[in-house]
Design a protein around this nucleic acid. Sequence first.
DNA 1: AGGATGATATCC
DNA 2: GATATCATCCTC
Length: 183
Amino acid sequence: MQKLTRDFYNRDTIVVAKDLLGKRLVHRVDHAERIGKIVEVEAYLGPHDLAAHTSKGITSRTKVMYGPPGHVYVYLVYGMHYCMNVVTEQDGTGAAVLLRAIEPLQNIADKTTGPGLLCKAMGVTLKDYGHDLCSDDFYIESACGDEPVTIVERPRVGVAYAGEWADKPLRFYIEGSRYISKK
DNA sequence: AGGATGATATCC
DNA sequence: GATATCATCCTC
């Protein structure tokens, strides 16, 4: 078990996205560690990626995504669900990886197959906006003996408005996992 | 197939 | 300050 360092996140976003599959997301809430294995993610590459929130430029909402890697970008979608992202690449890039689904491992009661459900189960809300994952109560670690996995590539979900960027295969998940949000 | 529900960006 | 738009989920 090894906590991921800043260097892990400070790399090409697609590489980080694929590398996050199989890692353990750990969040301590009320003295209990909630742990889930990441099984599905999406890559948002930067301002040139029309599906990314940073394509609108630096705003109060996107400033964390434009900041240094290894921090958490949380936002509210559709007025009721939170989604969490991990900021990637060097300070100023504006790229991140959306966590879409986890496999429950410890202290998780609710469903986890979708970005909104994942945040609810992990206790992630807007209060976690900007949190540094290089910390002790909210971080990602590699499992001991991290087994290689087969990665499936698909177009991202819910970004039909993004023109040609809607079709790019930037959604990645672990083949065979029963916790994938959609087929 | 359609509705819930509120922050945010983008207009006036 | 008003309004259109959501990186979703649940129920019918």
